[in-house]
Amino acid sequence: MAVATQGTASNYLQRAPSPSGLADVVDLILDKGLVIDAYIRIAVIGIELVTIDARIVIASVDTYLRFAEAVNRLDLQQTEKAGIDELRGNGGGGKDKAKGMLEGAKEKVGRSNGDSRD
């Protein structure tokens, strides 16, 4: 079971005494550990390997557009840092534009997902 560290200023370190899910376990026991050529080796079939989903897409225009979209939809007001007012000041019109683009991008993603499933 995973628990947040107690008694510190940090909520950013999660502590787990043992592997807390299938993905963790797969990381530890599928290609790790001593492997001995034995009588038989049980094949792992029918278990969706969660980690595969997260494979990195090689740098491409698609990746760049994904980063651009993520940056456009940032709400810098939430980040409590200096200098933001300046950014917001000259971005009054840009915000609406960004929103429009974001919706466009979402539609695009939705469609291409549909295509790939067909």
Partner: peptide
Amino acid sequence: LAEIVEGEPRIAALRGSSNPADQVALGEAV
């Protein structure tokens, strides 16, 4: 991403641009 935008004026300037080429340049810089 917020730290990257705040740390790089070029990225901050490209942010929100409606020009597709700017968007690719923005994503690449990020």
